[in-house]
Design a protein around this nucleic acid. Structure first.
Length: 141
RNA sequence: CCAGCUGGCCGGGCGGCCGCUGCCGGGGUUGCAGGCUUUGCGGCCGAAGCACCCGGUGGAGGAAAGUCCGGGCUCCAGGGAUCAACGGUGGCGGCUAACGGCCGCCGGGGGUGACCCCAGGGAAAGUGCCACAGAAAACAGACCGCCGGAGCGGGGCAACCCGCAAAGGCAAGGGUGAAACGGUGCGGUAAGAGCGCACCGCGUCUCCGGCAACGGAGGCGGCACGGCAAACCCCACCGGGAGCAAGACCGAAUAGGGGCGGCACGAUGCCGGGGCGACCCGGUAUCAGGCGAGAUCCAGGCCGCCGCCCGGGUUGGUUGCUCGAGGCUCGGAGCGAUCCGCGCCCAAGAUGAAUGGCCGUCGCGGAGGGGCAACUCUCCAGACAGAACCCGGCUUACAGGCCGGCUGGCAAA
RNA sequence: UGCAGGGUGGAGCAGUCCGGUCAGCUCGCGUGGUUCAUACCCAUGAGGUCGCCGGUUCGAAUCCGGCCCCUGCUA
């Protein structure tokens, strides 16, 4: 509740590079995964074959299925997740990784600060070597 | 003032930090692309492309929704006419590009009223259905009943009285049903009945008003016409199919397909070639034949046509893509929908899909508290919902608010 | 995005075209019987706003219109 001093601002953050191909989404499904109340994060290092440009920035894909809500709610969820990614990607994401965020219903109304916190934690867990923290399930509020 | 009806409109404002996207202008050193040069490394050029940087500017809805109608646009079906089949619409007149939409009017129903609702053509063209109940459910018919009284029985001296009751007449009353072959009243009668009369309803004819739906008046008929067409149907009118994932271009890749079956592969003339020759091959013309979407016809076209099966490839980019039955002001015509004229304006174009994320503040609404009051404090609420080629409608969802008109009641003047 | 099909007891389905007799079938469930006991079997019973809201009709699961949901197909 003490978000007054932040003034809602974030430091200069570049735009988010998004995934566009269905094949890219399918590839990342096989990577590391971490779930929170508001979303599921999947991550996988970019393979050397499909690298048109040398790794300049991390790439993110967003999945919001029809079961979650109507179009207005789905759009809002995708924008909030995108804004959260924009706030943290410089400090917590790896530039040679691809990520996919699968939205869940609470992403619509949960506090934005909590969403950002979850994302930082999820990014951290997903970068650990395989076998530790894989398929984890988050239990905090 | 209270209660209500109705038409139109709005769908928070301002600000801060950080972002997305279209367009315009400037830069564009390094990078990509382009041009020139070199055997090559490399070098140079210009600022006309992209990335990137800076500045400016535009950026969701009244329903963007549901996809229920009508169009534009694109491709496909070879053109036209008539019919059939199928689907849709359904009072009349108008508006419109068109509509199943809108406006006005008519008819019916509801409401004290403003006003609201109605798929509202045809049931004497035909077919079909009307369960249960009821006597009877559709050219009528008669259960109880009413009248009638041949005759029979009993009583009485008799007149006569009491009881039973056939033929025949009737459809008023009872009862059933959603619906019972006009309704109410008076006359009439043995009892009754449109049997007669009045009014209402119905049918029909004439006249008047109206473009019409229809309304009004009068005459006649004497009831003969039940309901259902959102049952088949009849009548009138309308309708080819698919849809921007339509379609076009560039690039990549694969293929320039294969097999089976059916029907038809005919006749004549001319030309050329081959052959000793019968004849063969090719071209061309006419006729015949065949072929496209259910049939027929007309004009015209094509020369093989039709059916089934198997195999292979692409899921990149550009375009279509936003100036259009477009919006606004003013004036005019019309009751109105709408139309006309002048002027002004350009108003989202994304494509794993932009138009936002976080926050502050003001104003508005509701509840509670303090204060005589102006006012002030706290809490809560702020909906439905996101363009996907574009328009015109319909339907559905929606917190709160603004403006106008009207009706009923109460009070005052 | 465009287009088809379907919603009936707990489950799977009839009935809808041609409206009353209509709400039925199989499995499942309850009770009783049979058996030492269970299953099978026999008898019996409960359970349905016919997806929702209107309209047409005397009468609607059925006919008509509008919404909601599910499934499938579509470069």
């Amino acid at each position: 509740m003490a978000r007054k001093q932040t003034d809602g601002a974030s430091r200069a953050a570049p735009g988010v590079v998004t995934l566009k191909r269905r094949s890219e989404f399918l590839r990342i499904r096989k990577g590391a995964r971490w779930a929170t109340q508001a979303f599921v994060l999947e991550a996988k290092p970019r393979s050397d074959q499909d690298r048109p440009v040398p790794a300049a920035a991390p790439r993110f894909g967003f999945t919001v299925t029809k079961q979650i809500g109507k179009a207005v709610e789905r759009n809002r969820i995708r924008r909030r997740l995108k804004a959260a990614v924009r706030n943290v990607q410089m400090d917590h994401a790896k530039r040679d990784f691809d990520y996919v965020l699968i939205a869940r219903r609470p992403a619509l109304n949960s506090a934005f600060d909590a969403l950002v916190g979850d994302l930082v934690k999820a990014l951290d867990r997903v970068h650990r070597p395989a076998g530790q923290g894989r398929r984890g399930r988050d239990v905090h509020k």
